[in-house]
């Protein structure tokens, strides 16, 4: 499904170059549940963005479902992103002037799907995250946990194969956080590939495969079923 080989990425922070990823090799199979942990600046967000096609590697290659992405132009990358990947952010990033339903419809709107179909799909996923009755509300009227569930609904409405979550519970209290994690894990059980970047050790531990990053490199890659990273190939 996801294949990174010898990926490097360097950012310029002021004058000094910062190597965010150093020779990262990684393979993720369909339906896996991974957590990526590590100190700030260890490159875990960069890794997430790389996998999410928001960022390009300086060198190395990234194959997504057999497609070499590093040579693709902006348009095909946007299409791949729309088809394969759902994002969940720490700060939810819902658009305040839009209703819950419209927020969930947004990816379909960008994809040019007809309004009737959009509405149907959006209501279906809202049902799935347990917020069908909040369809007409605006983000300002919802609690943190509800907001993140709307964001999840938005992330999965295009039926992506991969869900990338950047600190999904970072802005939530314990109870709401648990709700959100439950929704995410349910989705994973239904077959979606789930990758969670987090500082929260408890959340990290729940994943079946745990990756620890330090200074842009993968320090450890451990799994419950004792399978090493490279061997859970496609």
């Amino acid at each position: 499904m996801i294949e990174l080989s010898v990926v490097n990425k360097t950012y310029l922070v002021g004058e000094a170059p910062l190597r965010a990823l150093r020779d990262v090799n990684m393979t993720i199979g369909a339906g896996e549940y991974l957590s990526v942990m590590g100190p700030s600046g260890s490159g875990k967000s960069t890794l997430l963005n790389m996998i999410g096609l928001l960022d390009r590697p300086d060198s190395g290659s990234y194959c997504l479902d057999g497609v070499a992405t590093e040579t693709l132009g902006e348009e095909p990358r946007a299409r791949l992103r729309a088809d394969y990947i759902g994002f969940i952010f720490q700060a939810f990033h819902l658009i305040n002037r839009l209703t819950t339903l419209e927020n969930v419809e947004l990816p379909m709107m960008l994809g040019g799907i007809a309004p009737k179909q959009r509405r149907q799909n959006a209501l279906a996923v809202l049902e799935q995250v347990g917020l069908a009755d909040r369809a007409g509300h605006r983000p300002g009227q919802l609690s943190g946990g509800q907001l993140q569930r709307v964001a999840i609904a938005r992330a999965i409405v295009m039926k992506p194969r991969i869900l990338l979550a950047d600190e999904p519970t970072g802005n939530l209290d314990q109870a709401s956080g648990n709700e959100v994690v439950e929704v995410l894990e349910n989705l994973n059980r239904e077959g979606i590939t789930l990758l969670v970047v987090t500082h929260d050790a408890n959340l990290g531990k729940r994943a079946k495969r745990r990756i620890r990053m330090v200074d842009g490199q993968i320090e450890s890659d451990t799994g419950d079923d004792n399978v090493a990273a490279g061997s859970t190939a496609l």
């Binding site: 999410g52 928001l54 902006e74 348009e75 990358r77 946007a78 299409r79 992103r81 729309a82 088809d83 994002f87 700060a91 990033h93 658009i95 947004l106 990816p107 960008l110 994809g111 938005r154 295009m158």
Partner: peptide, 16 residues
């Protein structure tokens, strides 16, 4: 900025 970034993350292209 955030909204634009979001649109891109949701599959919107630079052209859009």
């Amino acid at each position: 900025r955030q909204e634009i970034g979001l649109l891109k993350a949701l599959g919107g292209s630079s052209r859009q």
